[in-house]
């Protein structure tokens, strides 16, 4: 029976992996297709990569997306960390519950609603104070910060809750003023959470199509907007090439993250081994 079950499990695993990875493998293979028609195999070629590298609008979209993602991640991390600190370390303050639920609302709000409401907001703001004069880079960045800071705040809250509050009290007790406690104890302990939050905000921004489509204006195309608008005109081999590059980029990032995690685990095991030796 055990054997049957293990066979069943391995079949399910294989099917799952096929569904996940075969489409990507196909995409990578077709990006090296010579033929202009995606489903027709015309032999191996890298011509679509050179087409891609010469295509200016693709590069400006990549650049715009990266610029937005970096600025968004930085501001979202900053604001999200402050919000998380307020929620976990400031005790009970007035309207805390309201603040907490408003903080996580963007996580559960349908993107289409967030996008629509932000668009309405920007339009009425323009009528009211004449800014933002045109929608594009600035409006997308603001929109992204508003929803990604919620994700950062959640990560920071979790990290703070798991952190020994006595550490901060010990620092206070040893004569450090509250700001010094923040910089010398709290922030260094929060750093891994902040890095994770930054990366998540970066990814969310890079990935967002719906909200960006709502709040963008003429001429400001992020990478997802560009890919989506091109795909609407039919499958294109140069987009396959672009997707392949993105897959490669993500794979490298994941590998680096895995390496860092492996190192940390290694270090922890070493520490434990040293501590265990002290016991005896």
């Amino acid at each position: 029976m055990n054997r049957n079950r293990s066979r069943f499990l391995s079949i399910m695993l294989t099917v799952g992996l096929i569904f996940l990875y075969v489409p990507m493998i196909l995409l990578v293979i077709y990006s090296f297709n010579f033929s202009k028609l995606v489903p027709v195999w015309g032999g191996w070629s890298t011509r679509w990569y050179s087409v891609l590298f010469q295509s200016e609008d693709v590069w400006s979209a990549v650049l715009l997306s990266l610029k937005i993602a970096v600025i968004n991640a930085t501001f979202a991390t900053l604001l999200g960390t402050l919000a998380g600190l307020a929620m976990v370390r400031f005790g009970r303050f007035r309207l805390r519950t309201l603040f907490g639920s408003m903080l996580v609302a963007p996580l559960v709000m349908p993107e289409i609603i967030t996008g629509l409401s932000l668009l309405v907001f920007f339009i009425s703001l323009k009528q009211l104070i004449g800014w933002p004069t045109e929608r594009g880079f600035t409006t997308i960045t603001i929109a992204h910060i508003t929803f990604s800071l919620a994700y950062v705040a959640v990560i920071i809250q979790a990290r703070l809750t798991g952190m020994d509050q006595n550490l901060e009290e010990a620092a206070l007790d040893l004569g450090a003023k509250p700001f010094k406690v923040l910089t010398a104890i709290t922030l260094p302990r929060l750093a891994p959470g902040m890095v994770a939050g930054w990366l998540l905000a970066f990814t969310l921004s890079l990935d967002d199509l719906v909200i960006a489509s709502f709040v963008t204006g003429p001429g400001a195309n992020t990478l997802p907007i560009l890919i989506f608008s091109r795909i609407r005109l039919g499958l294109r081999p140069d987009i396959n090439a672009l997707a392949t590059i993105i897959i490669l980029f993500v794979a490298i990032c994941v590998a680096i993250a895995a390496l860092i995690m492996f190192r940390q685990q290694r270090r922890q095991e070493l520490d434990e081994a040293i501590a265990a030796r002290e016991m005896s």
Partner: peptide, 20 residues
Amino acid sequence: VPPYERPTNMMFQSYALFPH
């Protein structure tokens, strides 16, 4: 008088040693 100006020091049950 706030904790950082008191002539007291505390040893915590969890020790609260700064791990970093």
